[in-house]
Each structure stands twice: as C-alpha cells, then as structure tokens.
Design a protein around this nucleic acid. Structure first.
Lengths: 369, 369
DNA sequence: GTGAAAGCGCTAACAC
DNA sequence: GTGTTAGCGCTTTCAC
C-alpha cells in the first residue's frame, strides 16, 4: 500500500527465527525471554538496523509516551527556567515533551482543547495558567493526568509558592533596612480589550506588601502603588512616576525581577543612585538578577518545573500524589540594590566582598495540604 | 482487549449511517463528499463527542504531525527567542513540537539518534549545533527533513547570519566613535575535559573584530582579547582583567549580549563610567539589551526560528528550498553603552531622547548560495 | 460519492 | 519461554 520505510518487528522476528511477541518482549526488556533468544534477537535488530516505531507502540498500548507542557510567555526568563526544569526530568524518564507556548486566552483554549483529544498526551503540565472548572473536567473525562506549576488547581497536584508571603518577605526586608516609604510596581489587571491569562501573582505580592506595611503600623499610601501591563518598559515608566513624586519612596518593591530591571533603569535615567538614594527589591531571582546585583525574593523556578514533572511522572506511573499542594520555599537574596536608608556607597573590592555574602531569610518549604 | 477510551471513527460511521471511509474524508476535509453527507457526519461527531486520534492517523499515514527542535542551552535568552519563533509557525501549521534541550554532547547525540527512529518526527530543526557527516546521513537515510538555524549544514537548508561581518560591524562602530584600543571578550574553545557543542560564533566574531582592526591599520593586541567559558560571570572577570590593564581599552566588544552584561557589571564594580570611560558593544540584541541601554549587533533571533520552521514546513509539504543558505541581516543598534571617546554624560530627559534614535547600520539580508 | 477491506507496526492475551 | 493472533484507530485503495 505505502512504501515501507524500514524493517519492522516482523522482519526482525523472521530474521532471528522467533515470533513477533518475543521480539516485542526483547525490545521492552520484558522478562520471560531466554538469554540466548534475546541475544539472537538483538543481533537481528542490530543487523537489520531496526528502529521501533513509537507511533505503533503508542497506538497499540493506547497511550503515547508524550507529555505536553502548556506555558505562557515562554520567552520570559521565569518561564524558560521552569520549562528547562521540566524537560530535564521528562527527558530522563523517556518522555517526548511537546511545548505549547501560549500568549493569549484564545491560544490557551486552543491548546487545552487539542490536548484532551485522544492519544495526544500521556499527561500534561500546566504552568501559571488558571484553568476553568470545565477545562479541568475535560482532562478528567479524558483520563489525562494533569499537574499544575505556579498556579493552584483545586483537586489536582500543584506546585506553587506563597506569593503573599513573598510580598511580605520583600517588604519586611526593606523595612528592616529602615525604609518607611516603600513603593510598589506591579501588574495591573488588564482591560477587557486585552483579556489576560489570569495571572494573580502580582496581586498577591501586593497583598503581602500591604500586609507587611500594616503589620508594621505603616500607612499604605495608594500613591506609592503603581500598576501597569507586565514588562520592563512599563515598569520603568511607573517607577519614573514614583521617583517624580513630591516625596518619593526610598525603596521600591517590584512584583518581578523583570519589572525591577525597569525600576533600576528608571533610577539610572533619573540619576538616582542605587542603593544610595533608592533600594530596589525584585521577585523571582532570574539569572539576570545576580548579574545586576538585584536584591530579590528567590523562588525555585527550575525546581518548580522539576517537581511538576516528577509528580506527573509519578501519576502516570500510577502513584498517588499526597499532599496535592506542594509549597516551594522562598527566601530573600540580599544583593547590591538594597541597603539601609541613606546608605553611602562603597566601591571596588569592598563591595564585591559584600556581595558575596547575601543575607538570607528563609520561608516556607514545608509541604502542606 | 483494552478499555476503550472514547468513540472511534467506526462509531461515528455507524451513528451517521455511512462508512468509515466517508467519515475519514470528512475529518480531513477531503473532497468527494456530498454536502448533506458531510453534515450528517459532522452532526454525529458533535453528538458523540468524537475526537480523532493523532496516533492512529499518523501511523496509518506513515508520518506523524510532530516535529522536533533540537536546541542547546534553552535557558539562554537567544535560544528561547529562536524557539518561540519556531513554535509560533509550527503551531500555526498544526504541528506538535517536541523540544529537545541539549546541554552536552552526550545529550545531543542521544536526542539526534532518537529522532531518526521511525515515526518519531516528520521533520527536525536543529539550532546552533554543528552536526557530523554521519548524523546528517542518518537523517537522510531515514528520509527525515532537516533544517538548520544558526549553524551551517552543507547540503541542507540553513538560516544563518554572517558572524564575521557582525564582528566587523561592531568593531567598526566602535572605531567610528574614535576608539582605537578595543578589547574583546568572548568564548574560549573549551578543553577536552568539558567537550563543548562546537559553537563557532564567538570565534567568527573575533575574526571579524580582527579583520576590522587590521583594515583600519590598527594593531591587534593579543592582550586585549580575553576568552573564557560562556557566561556573564566569566565575562565579568575577563572584563575586569581588561580594565585592570596598564593601558586599559576605551571600548570592549563582547561576543554576546550576555557577556556584554558581564562587562557592564565589571565596569560598574570598578566604578568605571559607561560610556564615559568605557564603551561596550554586545551581540544579539536580546530583550535585556534594550533595557540596559546596551549597544549591540542585532540579529533577528525570533525570525531565525520563524524562517527555519517555515522552511521545514515547506519541505514537509514537498517543496524544494532554494537557495539552501539563507542569510539574515545584521545591524548595529546604537544605545547608551557606546559613545565617542571621552564622552561627557548627559542626564535626564536629554539622554532619554537620545536613546530613542539609535543609529542603525545595515548589513546582509540578501539570500545567497 | 460512498462502502468495504487491507494495511500501518506494535502490544498483549492466550495457547502451547 | 515462545508463537499466534486479535486488536489499537485511522487512511487509502479499489470496486461499485
């Protein structure tokens, strides 16, 4: 019917004088095969240059050795790190990983719908995206294991951090350095015109910021909170607003490192010294943070991918996941961008040394449910 | 035998009172189906909640609708941008994309070998990785379309840039600003202990740098060339060496933006003003470059992924690709990090305005073969 | 136009 | 232990 593209299991069977069943067993390292037989088969495989067909195996088995990872804004540093973490373990377990990058709700829904089709994926990792009850139900109906990373999915395994606590951590760090007037730069809930993917991290971090302020008896000045679409350019503009205030903040907490970079940039533009005149704290600890000497709340990005993937593998293996909620630890990494109010800069080797010993405050890490 | 997981084409056929062949035609939008019949079938599909099985279709067709992209160091900004570009077009064409991140030669060989197995991928995009003649032959033997991005693959379609010309571009830019003592920070050919993936970009950019220097009648001082393992930390150290020289360079060209960031960082540590005392030019124009005001040689990263993917799709569609070599354009983006020798800084709005009008020098863009 | 039937290459029962 | 066989769900001739 079609041109055959290579030797099949039948050819191997014929060549080695055994049945296809035996060849299959050898391929899959199943037991109940005599050593001699195995060798014969292996020789035939080698000689014929036989390569098993994933497709046929998967169809026959009823389930592909493929998992999908649905991840928004792939090019953001935090997303890639998560992806890389997941890929490394999926790889190790022999899964093919198809990556679905989503940049809009439409794209998200498209991918999600496609993934519940038959034989599409043996499991799915969903990153940062809140799913509707209906979407979750589709996966359940299709019996496709689903785990979430960086987003809470009730009833399903999810690996997350406590964003509120993170916001508190950052704010308390700043307050411990003597800052009393602390600005916040974060994401704004977008308009209907640009419907978003439902990220809540920034909001939660803001909540933590406010909580910490309140707990310390500090007023939370609405003027000090600036929100806008995610991205360094916006963050830069927002920070510029903050710095232009009659009484500007002495510190700014940005909801992400990317945004913190915008803040740094704004300060540089305005000739404001970091950390002399302004302390900045970010969130995530992406790779650029270290390079820029950015103080930040570190979350284990790569690990989140690793954990999510490992849990998915466990489920696909048939294991039960308990507890469903896995909380990853957060900690402050104190670098050059934050210092005590009115800090006088030190240059050269001294500062370098200082940077080598970041102050660290731990939090979380305890799984709970 | 196995628990059936949902309605099949046969169920749809039965429900709509037609044969499976007809259903198949409907699913694939094939012709020769009466409109009425089509509607009936569509109704049955809807009613049964039928989802076609990719696996079965692929097996039957002899070729999956899956392509693989093999890409080293996924977490590097340049790699992600390429990946994102490729994903967007593959997605649009309805392909699943499995991503193979490679961090070592062993991993590379592992993935490459796996991909030549039967029914594994309908096509492969290989990014930045030089392939051995043998590896290429394997793909050819397996009749798996292969295209390269950011690496030249003789006899196969490849989308690349002219790294030598890029190196020249950067160097000439610096020279045009009056710089005569220009340092270079790039990748060193790693030792056997840490066998690398064979990237040659840094070397070629260095060659361009030397060529430009020579063409301008400037001596190329070996002390001004510093090489080390890729990464900002190393670059920072190398730049520090350069800055510590008895007669330090007035400008540094880094083989990548990531390394340029290390250079910037080193300058900041040493209290050296950018661009007052030191001009810096990078390569790639990753997203962070704009934010940092880093002058750089821009290469179309995302586009390279787009182009590679489009060419792969074309081949899978049966088209011929001519010419094989596709050269993407390069251009200098002049930002704050480079200026004339002895430049006096301007602050505030003035500088902001200046940054809005980067000088641009074009090069390449013409396909050739 | 449409139906029937033969694969695609493999896994998994089941018999021996 | 090993061979045989019946699917897995679809595409694609080939008759009608």
């Amino acid at each position: 019917m079609r041109a055959r593209s290579g030797p099949t299991i039948a050819d191997v069977a014929a060549a080695s004088g055994v049945g296809v069943g035996t060849v299959s067993r050898v391929i899959n390292n199943a037991e109940h095969v005599r050593a001699g037989t195995r060798l014969k088969v292996l020789a035939a495989i080698e000689q014929l240059g036989y390569r098993p067909s994933h497709l046929a195996a998967a169809l026959s088995r009823g389930r592909p050795r493929t998992v999908a990872i649905v991840i928004p804004h792939l090019t953001r540093p935090s997303a890639v790190e998560r992806l890389a973490g997941a890929l490394s373990v999926l790889d190790k377990h022999g899964y093919d990983t198809v990556v679905c990058n989503v940049g809009s709700p439409a794209q998200r829904d498209h991918h999600l719908a496609a993934l519940t089709a038959r034989h599409r994926a043996a499991g799915v990792i969903i990153v940062s995206l809140p799913l509707s009850r209906h979407q979750v139900a589709e996966f359940r109906a299709a019996a496709i294991p689903l785990v979430a990373v960086d987003v809470s999915l009730p009833g399903l395994p999810h690996t997350i951090i406590d964003d509120v606590a993170g916001g508190e951590l950052a704010t308390r760090h700043l307050m411990s350095l003597g800052h009393r007037r602390i600005g916040f730069v974060g994401d704004k809930f977008p308009s209907k015109k640009a419907p978003a993917l439902g990220f809540r991290s920034s909001d939660r971090r803001l909540a933590g910021y406010q909580r910490a302020l309140t707990a310390a008896g500090l007023p939370s000045d609405a003027h000090l909170v600036r929100l806008g679409p995610h991205g360094p350019a916006t963050a830069e503009a927002l920070a510029a607003q903050l710095l232009g205030l009659p009484v500007p903040p002495s510190a700014i907490f940005a909801a992400s490192d990317t945004q913190a970079m915008g803040v740094l940039s704004a300060a540089e533009r305005s000739g404001i010294a970091i950390p002399g005149q302004l302390s900045v704290v970010g969130f995530d600890d992406i790779q650029a943070a270290e390079l820029l000497g950015l103080s930040t709340v570190r979350q284990p990005l790569e690990d989140s991918g690793v954990m999510g993937a490992e849990r998915l593998c466990a489920i696909m293996r048939g294991d039960e996941i308990r507890p469903l909620r896995q909380l990853l630890p957060l900690r402050i990494v104190h670098r050059r961008s934050s210092a005590t109010v009115g800090h006088r800069p030190v240059t050269g080797a001294t500062e370098q040394a200082g940077q080598q010993t970041p102050t660290i405050a731990e939090l979380g890490g305890m799984p709970c449910d």
